[in-house]
Design a binder for these strands. Structure first.
Lengths: 132, 132
DNA sequence: CACGGCCATCGACATGCGTCAATATCGGCG
DNA sequence: CGCCGATATTGACGCATGTCGATGGCCGTG
């Protein structure tokens, strides 16, 4: 398998058009779905939350593992999925591996789902890297 | 299976705490995940988008089916999943069935994923029904 | 240099999920 | 009353995915 180290999906994902504005193209849908799939698991969702809320915004695997009743390879697998989807970044320092949340990823999905109530437009999520 | 006609998940889902603020409880995670799972499919994501962007905010199955290369039962199945998750509402008028987007559902997920960049708080999504 | 702990990978298994063909249901129309 | 078109339901099939046990690589330590 070619190196897909991180986050192709997060970037191509939801940039600006909330899906309530106009029909999502098949390509855009395929681009966003990996991100949603990565988040659509209770363990992974909690993992992201734990990392994000952890002191310093980063957490090592041993810390995360304690919150679950799962085997270590399972946690490692979920972290890999989140990393591949571009939700988490990995950094190995010494013996431990530290994970962080890539803020753009969540912001992109949030922006896509931000729905103007009724017919009004607006509600642009600020500063999720829409312009870059 | 008992009748779960619509939207238990959407309500219990993400109300106020973005998961970057504090760790998500296992129960909350289990509550939100059905919604994310419902959206984590390219066909369903496009269905939601098509319904939302359709004239009048509603669309019948025959309209939606034309946008895909899938059999009719498949579309019906996806619509049922979205309806069960509380993303779409169904109304049968005469021969046709019309679907609408339940705005609270998307707003809840968007609010959950809205991440304050870095350490700053803020970036509250307005008017997604958090208080109601 | 040998050992031990942290983490990732591999292989296997069970379950879940997307898809379809066939069929049922329901409402309108001749 | 009988037909037809629009949706929903059922049953089956194949692929994707979550989980585990076993194993391997890497780094720090004795």
């Amino acid at each position: 398998m070619p190196p897909a180290p991180a986050a192709p999906a997060a970037r191509a994902a939801a940039c600006c058009a909330p899906l309530t504005a106009e029909p999502l193209s098949p390509e855009s849908a395929e681009a966003v779905v990996p991100l949603l799939k990565a988040l659509a698991d209770p363990v992974r969702l909690r993992l992201v939350s734990l990392v994000a809320a952890h002191e310093g915004g980063e957490a090592c695997v041993c810390d995360l593992q304690e919150a679950f009743d799962l085997a270590q390879p399972t946690i490692s697998h979920h972290l890999k999925v989140l990393h591949t989807a571009g939700v988490l970044t990995r950094e190995k320092r010494g013996t431990w591996a530290y994970y962080r949340v890539q803020p753009d990823a969540l912001g992109a999905v949030a922006g896509l789902l931000s729905a103007p109530a009724g017919t009004a437009a607006g509600t642009l999520a600020p500063a999720t890297g829409c312009g870059a």
